[in-house]
Lab assay of single mutants.
Amino acid sequence: LKKVVALYDYMPMNANDLQLRKGDEYFILEESNLPWWRARDKNGQEGYIPSNYVTEAE
Rank of each mutant, 00 (worst) to 15 (best):
D24S: 08
Q19I: 08
Y48H: 05
Q19L: 09
E56A: 13
N33G: 10
S32H: 08
A57R: 11
D41A: 08
M11N: 11
K2A: 04
S32P: 08
V54K: 01
P12V: 04
E58Q: 13
L1G: 08
I49H: 01
Q19S: 09
Y8C: 14
G47Q: 00
N14F: 11
K22V: 08
K42C: 08
A6N: 00
S51G: 07
K3Y: 06
Q45F: 12
L20R: 00
E30M: 07
D17Y: 15
V4A: 04
W37Y: 11
A15Y: 10
D17Q: 15
Y26P: 00
N14G: 12
E46K: 03
D41Y: 02
I49M: 04
P12E: 03
S51N: 06
Y10V: 04
E58C: 13
A15M: 11
G47C: 02
N33C: 14
R40C: 08
P50H: 08
D41R: 02
E31R: 09
Y8I: 07
G23N: 05
L18T: 01
F27D: 07
V54Q: 01
E31K: 10
T55F: 10
R40I: 10
A39P: 00
N43C: 13
V54S: 01
E30I: 07
Y48L: 11
S32Q: 08
Q19N: 07
S32K: 08
M11I: 14
M11Y: 14
L34G: 15
M13S: 11
I49C: 03
F27C: 08
M13R: 14
M11E: 14
R38Q: 06
P12T: 05
D24V: 08
L29V: 10
Y53R: 05
D17R: 10
L29I: 13
N14S: 13
A6L: 01
Q19V: 08
G23R: 03
A6G: 02
T55S: 11
N14W: 10
T55N: 07
N52W: 15
G23I: 01
G23V: 01
E30V: 07
N52A: 14
F27E: 10
K22Q: 10
T55Q: 12
L7T: 05
L1V: 09
S32I: 08
Y8E: 07
M13H: 11
W36H: 08
N52E: 12
N43M: 12
E46N: 04
A39W: 02
V54R: 01
T55C: 12
A15I: 12
Y10P: 00
N43F: 14
M11A: 13
L29S: 03
R38I: 09
Q45K: 14
I49L: 07
V5P: 00
L1P: 08
A39I: 06
K42Y: 07
D41T: 05
N16H: 13
D9A: 04
D9T: 05
I28D: 00
N14P: 02
M11V: 13
N52M: 12
G23Y: 05
N52V: 09
D24H: 14
V5D: 01
E31F: 12
Q45Y: 11
L29H: 03
E30L: 07
P12K: 06
D24E: 15
V4P: 00
L20Q: 00
E25M: 14
D9H: 05
N52L: 09
E46L: 05
E58P: 14
N14R: 13
D17W: 15
L1A: 07
R38D: 02
Y8L: 09
V4S: 02
K2P: 05
G23A: 03
L7Q: 05
N14E: 07
E58L: 14
K22A: 13
L1C: 10
M11S: 12
I28A: 03
D9Y: 03
T55Y: 10
P35N: 15
F27R: 04
M13V: 14
Y48N: 09
E46Y: 05
N14Y: 12
E30P: 03
L18A: 01
I28N: 00
I28S: 01
K22L: 06
D24C: 13
L1I: 11
V54N: 01
K42H: 09
L20K: 00
L29Y: 06
K42G: 08
Q19P: 13
A39Y: 01
V54C: 04
N14M: 09
G47K: 01
T55R: 14
E31P: 07
L29G: 02
D17G: 15
L29F: 06
A15H: 12
S32Y: 08
Y26G: 01
Y10I: 03
G23E: 03
E56Y: 14
E46M: 06
V4W: 07
E25R: 06
D9L: 02
G23C: 07
K22E: 07
D24Q: 13
N52Q: 10
Y26S: 00
Y26H: 00
Y53M: 11
G47P: 00
A57D: 09
K3F: 06
V54D: 00
R21G: 03
D9W: 03
W37T: 07
E30K: 06
R38G: 03
S51L: 06
D24A: 09
W37L: 13
Y26Q: 00
L20I: 05
F27V: 10
D17V: 09
V4M: 08
D24P: 01
S51W: 14
K2R: 14
Y26A: 02
Y10D: 01
A6Y: 01
L7H: 04
A39Q: 00
T55I: 14
V4K: 03
S32D: 09
G44E: 04
I28W: 01
V54M: 04
D9P: 04
Y53D: 02
I49N: 01
T55V: 14
D41L: 02
E31G: 08
N33R: 10
F27A: 05
R21A: 07
Y8D: 06
E56P: 14
G23D: 07
Y48C: 12
N16E: 12
Y10W: 14
E31W: 13
S32T: 12
D41E: 03
L7P: 01
A57M: 13
V5I: 14
M13T: 13
E30H: 08
I28H: 00
Y53H: 07
E25N: 08
R40M: 13
Y8S: 06
W36E: 05
S51E: 04
A57K: 12
K3V: 13
W37V: 14
E31L: 09
L20D: 00
P12Y: 02
Y10M: 04
K42E: 08
Y53W: 07
K3P: 04
V54W: 02
L1Q: 07
P50W: 09
N16P: 04
S51K: 13
F27N: 04
R21M: 08
L7I: 10
Y26L: 07
K3M: 10
Y10L: 06
V4H: 03
E56R: 10
E25C: 13
E58D: 13
Y48D: 06
A57G: 10
F27W: 15
K42L: 10
N52D: 12
M11T: 14
P12N: 03
A6I: 01
K22M: 09
L34I: 08
A15Q: 12
A57L: 14
E58Y: 14
L34S: 15
W37E: 03
N33F: 09
D9M: 03
L18C: 02
W36L: 11
W36P: 05
P12M: 03
N16R: 13
E58H: 13
E30G: 07
A39K: 01
K42V: 10
A39N: 00
V4I: 04
N16I: 08
G44D: 05
A57N: 09
E56F: 14
N43Y: 14
G44M: 06
D24I: 06
L34M: 12
K42I: 10
N43P: 02
Y48F: 13
I28K: 02
E46R: 03
W37R: 05
F27I: 12
E58T: 14
L20P: 00
E31V: 11
P50F: 09
V54L: 04
R38W: 15
A39H: 00
F27P: 00
Y26E: 00
W36Q: 09
I49R: 00
L18G: 00
E31I: 11
K42T: 10
R40T: 05
V4C: 07
N33I: 10
R40N: 02
K2L: 07
D9C: 05
P35S: 15
E46W: 07
L18H: 01
Y10E: 00
N33W: 08
Y8F: 13
Y26V: 05
Q45H: 13
L18W: 02
E56Q: 11
